[in-house]
Write a protein that binds this DNA or RNA. Structure first.
Lengths: 241, 241
DNA sequence: CGCTATGTTGACATAGCTCAAACACAGTGG
DNA sequence: CCACTGTGTTTGAGCTATGTCAACATAGCG
């Protein structure tokens, strides 16, 4: 567990939070120095390997987390093993289903992930005391809902080619939210199987569509995971926009 | 526009709200008599025909609504006309995307719908003043997110047969949330084309799967729209649970 | 009672799935 | 240093669920 310290003045930012993205863009942005301190006293920061389960589908959870870095995949599974990834979360997203013990999805680290976790109780009390915190949470939830609905269009109505292009585009824009250049370079945060589970396809179809994008010069596949996109707008066209 | 009246005592429930489901289960449940009165002074209630567009996909909206009765479908469309219904809303759901002028989906009455609308400004001010209201909104948004993710599993991983069964089950459980009996009877709130757009299928496939369910005795189709389900658990099995 | 909407059914086409084999590469031990 | 194994990925050859297109049936409505 991390050590917390505070400065001479009571209300300064705890060291743990100083370099944290959530401090500004995440839910913690709603907190002042004292509140941050209170929360950080009961926070633990940890780094987990890809594949680590952070939240179980029907498991009771007693803690929530902020994602500090890395990518978390949220997925659902059917009794016979069919799986669907229903969302990806990036820093500085809040992880967990407030006001309900079961969350209905399981959360697994897709890449190496750093999280900052705190007790469910504490957060829920702070939420009830601090409207700004609840407001931040509502904003994030609304954004996730928008994203979920965008993805429903992808799942229900796009072709395999459009789906794969949409996925690459999603990662590209999330990796570099405010990219100015046309060209861009990044790592795909997950395996072909995961991509298939996100797109409602099979691994083989994903692979074929990726090589199609490569052969058509829309992307370069450097190293299975590593990809460059010379012209985002061409990719965007392929995604069905 | 409806007439507002108040009783002798200032803080009684406005007549407009007295018989309203949202008063209790919806967002208005967070309001006391005075607050309700303030809101209801700027509310209008109206009934619209099936097919009426309530919110445009990229249209700026200046009002929010509560659904009093009926079913509203939320949909997205691609440039070439492909359409996906991304959610259904029932009474007493809140309709509209807070904190953003564009909402990214269009909302259309599936059945005859009664809504109670109020100005965006007023609601947003009331939200900022009243944490309970925001809390209600957060709870509804979280529920919608859960439902959206359930549906993503349906869209991405279920077969046509399972999709259609899932849809019938969804309507059955929403029409009678606390049904005790095995058997149940109701109207489908939308056409085959709409069902197809909700399930990511074609009209023809929906039709075929419905007749399959009928021939297998899982449902009875009385009148195209009107359906009876003799044994919910059999339907549930077909939906992939 | 006929007209138009909407829904059903059939015959055929095809996108994406399945199964199987080859490949690529990183790590491991000899 | 090189074979050996394991994991992930690509590619190929059929197969099947679902889409497409077109004819027909039915329901609702003037």
């Amino acid at each position: 567990m991390d050590v917390q310290r505070k400065d001479v003045h009571n209300s300064d930012t705890p060291v743990l939070c100083q370099a944290c993205e959530s401090r500004h863009r995440g839910v913690c942005g709603a907190l002042n120095g004292d509140q941050l301190l209170r929360l950080s006293k009961h926070s633990t920061r940890r780094t987990v390997e890809p594949g680590t389960e952070l939240v179980g589908e029907s498991l009771q959870t007693t803690s929530y987390s902020n994602i500090i870095s890395g990518v978390v995949k949220l997925s659902k599974m059917m009794a016979d093993g069919r799986q669907q990834i229903v969302g990806l979360q990036f820093a500085p997203d809040f992880l967990g289903r407030p006001f309900r013990s079961e969350n209905g999805v399981s959360a697994e680290a897709a890449t190496e992930v750093q999280v900052c976790s705190f007790s469910k109780h504490l957060i829920e009390r702070m939420i009830s005391e601090m409207p700004e915190l609840e407001h931040k949470l509502l904003e994030q939830t609304l954004n996730e809902l928008d994203e979920a609905r965008d993805w429903m269009l992808t799942l229900g109505r796009k072709t395999a080619g459009e789906k794969v292009a949409s996925f690459v585009l999603l990662i590209a824009t999330h990796a570099f939210p405010d990219n100015e250049k046309d060209s861009i370079e990044f790592d795909l945060p997950m395996s072909r199987v995961d991509i298939a589970d996100f797109l409602g396809l099979t691994m083989e179809t994903v692979s074929r569509q990726l090589t199609k994008l490569r052969k058509d010069g829309v992307i370069h596949i450097v190293n299975n995971r590593h990809v460059t996109v010379p012209d985002i707008s061409r990719l965007s066209d392929r995604a069905g926009f």
